[in-house]
Write a protein that binds this DNA or RNA. Structure first.
Length: 796
RNA sequence: GCCUGGGUGGCGGAAUUUGGUUUACGCGUAGCACUCAAAAUGCUAUGGCCUUCACUGGCCGUGUGGGUUCGAGUCCCACCUCAGGCACCA
């Protein structure tokens, strides 16, 4: 008997698949295109993580079933190899990122091949390939041309360890997303993308797309829409006024002081009116040095300084109220200033108590008090009335901030912009607001990243490219004079914000994507990935698609109508991390048990969208299962006994269950159904036809062993191109059912009965049962509940 | 503090579609078979307590406490707890 040599089988079929293009759809002519996309990995660590494999396997199973259902499935893969994560890894091991990329690339692709996914190997994308980032730069210039990219000086997040600025989305609880260092604020001029312009659309479209609910919620919270009013408080004896945003204009009469954020530009205008300006300045300086983390660590303890010598006027009642500067007000939200209502806001209350400010209640039981002519009015109604009185206007405010795109690092796509001082002095430029700035013309793209020996981040607020004269010296595209290139590189998240568009057009030389191919394959049918990207990648990618759609370059607005987040794989109750030393490398498991075993085990341990706990011994259950599959098929390969009615019913029930389970990503229960199926075959024997059905149902989960056994059956074409079985409803109907007999809701007996049995039949059967009779003990039932084909319950 | 998802055997998890047999499937454990022996494999048992020589039968059991119902893991209310996310956003 032939032995199950999984290593040999897996390597053999992986080669055959690749050489014969089994998983290469015809991108131009496909009739039923199905784009099965998964988030591409970043090759930063020592190798592919078992968590990556978990994600890829789950996505692949779905794609394999779709392929067997007759779709032209396109399942591409690539590497998100540009960016800080890869650069930091290179730094750590003392390699140059450009050299390291080639090494990592080889290793990752080898591992990705070993897991046995149906990848379309001919269409790979590596974000650090100049043929790719040429178009990343082109996307940047498109943003620029449409007025969506701009430079601005403001306080930004700075990671002192990564020595670069970060987007808000990359600051997690005050720490750097990559290295967990505490992020500080720095006043710098940087490139931004105007994502806030799309806040409403990004929010509204969430209603139209089929995504994991938790990801939608995270995006909603991140965008953070608030409805309210913008009100003006004039400053006594000056032409200035303070604008505030509030969601509670109904409490205006209770506004007893105002607070400006430390960065508020108005403060410096009152240098001579403010009697304690030294103290104020000191406070502001101090606040600027504080990190987000320090502010959080101080807890709710409020600090601040009064701007002595100036007063604001409450527009509702003309009361003169004091003005403070305090860091509990953020410069980056709303107008950077607030009206403080200590009676109805916890934070204002804490501040007022500390500084002994009056606290006036203006709402009681949902109605206004102490509010002049508004007294007694419903608070909800009063809001708009008071706004009108105060000369304010309705305003919708978002928490979302513009996307900070520049990075002071080496390993990224250079921002394709040129600055000409001469043009600037003449007030010339491509954008009115930004004289001197020009995009690199498309014919000059890509702006190639040079091989720089000392690529380490400088920490001076500049990229290492700023010390490479050959790089930054260039000609002005407008006047032809001496000009300087932008030396910052773009955020890695720009690379991954459009990669899915490139895959099917990867052979296109003169365009970022081919319009006909794009029309055929987009939007993506299913996108799978981690929920950790809820407000990073998944927000940026929608934003970029939206702008390209608006520019008429894409026929869709939402790139991923269906997205599913897979769960997190943990190890014995703890997150896998290098510091804990519990990271699982899939290579060893593949070598010892085979890729099919590991794939199935990963999918069996919990629902795919929930994630699960990896436990070493549990893999054995699947190893045994595949051994038994092999033995059964090899042993009985020539035997062909006719299947019983009962076997057929099980077969069709299983077809239906597995078809539904794969559709809903409940792979764990699908595998359990396969196990039940196998147990039955071992007991009863299996005919050729049912064996084929079984192998087909198993094929998406264990692609290699099923391919081998399929060819053993004498098949000449791949099982993965065979047709998915369809359940015949004729065999789904059961003839008998187990009647549940209860007395007072408690189970007393179960009796097999023909389907459609009447209540009379059921009662008769029940009273013929000794145990039921004992429970009833001769009493007459007060009530009898009969549920056809299920149960009968006697209430006594 | 706010939002989201959980809590079922020794363990991972089934069962919520439509309230109707709790613990499918697998791991682990125990016993048996095979073996000189072990591993592997196969078979049997496996929620707790009680009852019976045995066959059997009973009671309890899905985080806690209430409620609705003939009947609740499933629906309602309150709470406890774990995991994840956001966090001075006015």
């Amino acid at each position: 008997m032939k032995k199950y040599n999984f290593n040999k089988i897996e390597q053999y079929w992986q080669r055959v698949w690749k050489e014969s293009g089994t998983y290469e759809p015809n991108l131009k002519k496909a009739k039923k295109p199905f784009y099965n996309l998964m988030m591409f990995p970043y090759p930063s660590a020592e190798g592919l993580h078992v968590g990556n494999m978990y994600a890829f396997t789950g996505a692949d199973i779905y794609g394999r079933k779709k392929r067997m259902e007759g779709y032209d499935v396109f399942e591409p893969i690539g590497l998100d190899g540009f960016g800080i994560h890869s650069e930091n890894y290179a730094l750590k091991i003392g390699a140059h990122p450009m050299d390291q990329a080639k090494i990592s690339e080889k290793r990752f692709y080898k591992q990705l091949e070993a897991i046995g996914n149906g990848f379309a190997w001919d269409e790979r994308v590596e974000t650090y390939d100049p043929n790719y980032y040429k178009w990343t730069q082109w996307v940047f210039t498109e943003m620029w041309r449409r007025g969506l990219a701009y430079r601005k000086k403001q306080f930004v997040n700075w990671c002192p360890s990564c020595k670069t600025v970060l987007a808000d989305e990359q600051v997690i609880a005050g720490k750097c997303e990559r290295c967990s260092s505490i992020v500080v604020k720095k006043d710098m001029e940087q490139w931004f993308f105007r994502i806030t312009k799309y806040a409403e659309k990004l929010l509204g479209n969430l209603e139209k797309i089929d995504w994991s609910e938790k990801v939608k919620i995270a995006q909603r919270n991140w965008i953070g829409r608030s409805e309210g009013a913008e009100l003006k408080f004039s400053i006594l004896n000056s032409q200035f006024s303070i604008k505030v945003f509030t969601t509670r204009p109904d409490t205006l009469f209770g506004a007893t002081y105002m607070v400006l954020a430390p960065e508020h530009p108005l403060i410096s205008n009152f240098k001579f009116q403010i009697s304690n300006y030294d103290d104020v300045e000191k406070y502001i300086k101090n606040a600027a040095h504080k990190s987000e983390m320090e502010r959080i660590e101080e807890g709710r303890e409020k600090t601040g300084v009064e701007l002595k010598g100036i007063k604001a006027v409450n527009p509702a009642n003309n009361e003169k109220i004091p003005v403070f500067v305090a860091d509990y007000v953020l410069s980056s939200y709303g107008t950077g200033a607030i009206m403080a209502v200590p009676a109805h806001d916890e934070r204002d209350f804490a501040f007022a108590k500390k500084f002994n400010l009056p606290i006036i209640e203006v709402i009681s039981g949902g109605r206004l008090i102490n509010s002049g002519k508004f007294n007694g009015m419903d608070s909800e109604k009063a809001g708009w009335e008071i706004t009108k009185l105060a000369g304010g206007e309705r305003k919708i405010q978002y928490r979302l901030r513009d996307w900070l795109i520049s990075r002071q690092r080496y390993w990224g796509a250079p921002i394709p912009m040129i600055y000409c001082g001469v043009c600037a002095s003449k007030n010339e430029g491509e954008q009115k607001e930004m004289p001197g700035w020009y995009a690199v013309p498309e014919k000059d793209l890509p702006v190639k990243l040079p091989y720089v020996k000392d690529f380490r981040p400088q920490g001076k607020g500049e990229s290492p490219l700023a010390s490479v004269k050959k790089f930054y010296e260039t000609k002005c595209p407008h006047c032809g004079g001496k000009a300087r290139r932008e030396t910052d590189v773009s955020d890695t998240f720009l690379d991954s914000a459009w990669y899915y568009l490139r895959y099917p057009s990867v052979k296109e030389k003169n365009k970022a994507w081919n319009p006909e191919i794009t029309k055929k394959w987009f939007p993506v049918n299913l996108y799978t990935g981690g929920a950790e990207h809820s407000v990073l990648h998944l927000l940026y990618v929608r934003f970029v698609a939206m702008t390209l759609h608006e520019a008429g370059k894409l026929h869709f607005e939402e790139p991923f109508p269906k997205f599913r987040a897979h769960g997190l794989l943990i190890k014995e109750g703890a997150k896998m991390s290098k510091s804990k030393g519990n990271v699982i490398n899939p290579d060893e498991y593949i070598k010892n048990f085979g890729a099919d075993s590991l794939r199935m085990y990963l999918m069996f341990l919990a629902p795919f969208e929930q994630g699960g706990d990896f436990r070493d011994e549990a893999v054995l259950g699947i190893v045994r299962f595949l051994d038994r599959v092999w033995n059964l098929c090899v042993k009985e390969i020539k035997k062909s006994n006719k299947a019983s009615e009962e076997t057929l019913r099980l077969t069709h029930r299983t077809i239906k269950k597995i078809t539904n389970d794969i559709e809903s990503l409940h792979y764990n229960t699908a595998i359990s159904a396969l196990m039940i199926f196998l147990n039955e075959f071992e007991k009863k024997g299996v005919d050729k036809e049912n064996k084929e059905v079984f192998l087909k149902l198993l094929a998406p989960f264990a692609p290699h062993i099923t391919e081998e056994l399929w060819s053993e059956l004498g098949k000449k074409t791949s099982i993965h191109k065979s047709s998915w079985p369809i359940a015949n409803s004729k065999f789904l109907k059961e003839e008998d059912f187990d009647l549940v007999i209860q007395v007072n809701g408690k189970l007393r007996a179960t009796i097999k009965m023909p389907r459609g049995a009447s209540q009379r039949d059921a009662e008769k059967a029940a009273f013929g049962n000794e145990n039921v009779n004992n429970s009833i003990a001769g009493q007459k039932p007060k009530k009898t509940i009969f549920v056809p084909n299920r149960l009968i319950n006697f209430v006594i």
